Amino acid sequence: MDTEKCGPDHIDVLDKKITALSDALAHLGKGESLKELLRIIRFPGYTTPAEFAFTASILDGMAMQIRLLETTGEHLLAAAKQVGQQG
């Protein structure tokens, strides 16, 4: 994690970080890898009980991470809105 200091270009730094994160989330939201996973799980022999347990557990963990990202983003936006605004 970056421990950058607030300097004269701090807005540019935040802009780049926010844009990069937004782009990454938009790309993630396309779900291409999960569409491929939907295809794979239909192959004959998928899944053994162990594969089912691993897959279900990982999917549950990914869903929890998405909910955490959504909540964290909502909290960040709510906090940002509390900052004084230029009038």
Score class of each variant (00 low, 15 high):
residue 1 M to T: 09
residue 2 D to H: 14
residue 2 D to P: 03
residue 2 D to M: 05
residue 2 D to V: 08
residue 3 T to W: 13
residue 3 T to C: 09
residue 4 E to N: 10
residue 4 E to P: 04
residue 4 E to H: 11
residue 4 E to Y: 15
residue 5 K to Q: 12
residue 5 K to Y: 05
residue 5 K to T: 11
residue 6 C to H: 08
residue 6 C to A: 11
residue 7 G to W: 01
residue 8 P to L: 14
residue 8 P to C: 05
residue 9 D to M: 13
residue 11 I to Q: 07
residue 11 I to E: 07
residue 11 I to S: 01
residue 11 I to P: 00
residue 12 D to A: 12
residue 17 K to P: 00
residue 17 K to N: 02
residue 18 I to K: 10
residue 18 I to H: 10
residue 20 A to W: 06
residue 21 L to Q: 09
residue 21 L to H: 08
residue 21 L to W: 05
residue 22 S to D: 05
residue 23 D to L: 13
residue 23 D to Y: 07
residue 24 A to P: 00
residue 24 A to Q: 06
residue 26 A to C: 09
residue 29 G to D: 12
residue 29 G to A: 14
residue 29 G to Y: 04
residue 30 K to G: 11
residue 30 K to F: 05
residue 30 K to Y: 01
residue 31 G to V: 04
residue 31 G to H: 03
residue 31 G to C: 07
residue 31 G to E: 03
residue 31 G to S: 12
residue 32 E to L: 08
residue 32 E to S: 10
residue 33 S to M: 07
residue 33 S to Y: 07
residue 33 S to I: 12
residue 34 L to H: 13
residue 36 E to R: 02
residue 36 E to P: 01
residue 37 L to F: 13
residue 39 R to M: 10
residue 39 R to A: 09
residue 39 R to E: 14
residue 39 R to H: 15
residue 39 R to G: 06
residue 39 R to V: 14
residue 40 I to T: 12
residue 40 I to W: 04
residue 41 I to K: 08
residue 44 P to F: 01
residue 44 P to W: 02
residue 44 P to G: 04
residue 44 P to D: 12
residue 44 P to A: 04
residue 44 P to C: 04
residue 45 G to H: 02
residue 45 G to F: 03
residue 45 G to W: 01
residue 45 G to D: 10
residue 46 Y to L: 06
residue 48 T to D: 06
residue 48 T to R: 01
residue 48 T to Y: 02
residue 48 T to V: 05
residue 49 P to T: 07
residue 49 P to M: 07
residue 49 P to D: 11
residue 50 A to K: 01
residue 50 A to F: 10
residue 50 A to S: 08
residue 50 A to Y: 01
residue 50 A to I: 03
residue 50 A to E: 13
residue 51 E to N: 08
residue 51 E to V: 03
residue 51 E to G: 11
residue 52 F to V: 02
residue 52 F to L: 12
residue 52 F to A: 13
residue 52 F to D: 12
residue 52 F to R: 14
residue 53 A to G: 04
residue 54 F to E: 15
residue 55 T to D: 09
residue 58 I to H: 08
residue 58 I to W: 02
residue 59 L to S: 06
residue 59 L to C: 07
residue 59 L to I: 10
residue 60 D to I: 06
residue 61 G to D: 04
residue 61 G to V: 02
residue 62 M to Q: 12
residue 62 M to Y: 06
residue 62 M to G: 11
residue 63 A to C: 05
residue 63 A to Q: 08
residue 64 M to K: 15
residue 64 M to R: 15
residue 64 M to D: 00
residue 65 Q to I: 07
residue 67 R to H: 03
residue 67 R to S: 03
residue 67 R to L: 05
residue 69 L to M: 08
residue 70 E to W: 03
residue 70 E to A: 06
residue 71 T to K: 15
residue 71 T to S: 10
residue 72 T to V: 00
residue 73 G to T: 06
residue 73 G to W: 00
residue 74 E to S: 14
residue 74 E to M: 09
residue 75 H to Y: 01
residue 76 L to V: 10
residue 76 L to G: 06
residue 77 L to S: 06
residue 78 A to S: 14
residue 79 A to F: 00
residue 79 A to W: 00
residue 80 A to W: 01
residue 81 K to S: 04
residue 81 K to A: 04
residue 81 K to V: 03
residue 82 Q to R: 13
residue 82 Q to H: 15
residue 82 Q to W: 00
residue 82 Q to F: 00
residue 83 V to P: 03
residue 83 V to S: 05
residue 84 G to K: 13
residue 84 G to V: 10
residue 84 G to P: 11
residue 85 Q to F: 14
residue 85 Q to R: 13
residue 86 Q to I: 15
residue 86 Q to H: 09
residue 86 Q to N: 02
